[in-house]
């Protein structure tokens, strides 16, 4: 459980930092690399990628939604169309990135297992 949290946190922090300077898709190689390096289970890697990448959007989106972008978010949520529901828009946005991040982390974990079929104890943090 601890190693899952570590991976999740690693993904979240690095995804946030990366996206301050790089395009959104920089989270894809990040999740892949971090999962290949530190994942302990395949399902755990996917979940850490999903939540880590997802949170890197959910957190700032929730903040911006109440700090200046709420009106526009309502309009975008009408355009998309999500019935003007900004909560749903935040959820869906984060899920999209989470899906990309989760899949990238999953493939990273799968490669790790392919190289080391029976991994030893999880690497030390």
């Amino acid at each position: 459980m601890k190693s899952f949290s570590v991976l999740l946190l690693l993904i979240l922090v690095s995804a946030v930092l990366a996206q301050l300077f790089l395009p959104w898709w920089s989270v894809v190689p990040l999740c892949l690399g971090l999962a290949a390096w530190r994942s302990t289970s395949i399902g755990g890697a996917f979940l850490a990628g999903l939540l880590g990448a997802g949170l890197s959007w959910w957190l700032p989106a929730v903040w911006l939604n109440t700090h200046g972008a709420g009106l526009l978010a309502t309009r975008v949520a009408t355009l998309i169309p999500l019935g003007g529901n900004t909560g749903l828009l935040v959820l869906v946005s984060g899920l999209l990135l989470g899906l990309a991040g989760g899949l990238a982390a999953l493939s990273g974990a799968l490669f790790r297992w392919a190289f080391a079929p029976r991994p030893a104890a999880p690497a030390k943090a």
Binding site: Q19, L20, P23, W24, W25, V28, W57, P60, A61, L64, N65, H67, G68, A69, G70, L71, L72, A73, V76, L89, V92, S93, L96, L97, A100
Partner: peptide, 28 residues
């Protein structure tokens, strides 16, 4: 990743549009 990053017909590049770092959220 490619699908989310590219304009598909009339559908905008979804991830670039929805990104809180560079997308529409920055227009607040």
């Amino acid at each position: 990743t490619w699908v989310l990053n590219t304009k598909q017909g009339d559908v905008p590049p979804v991830a670039r549009l929805l990104s809180p770092y560079r997308g529409f959220w920055q227009n607040g």
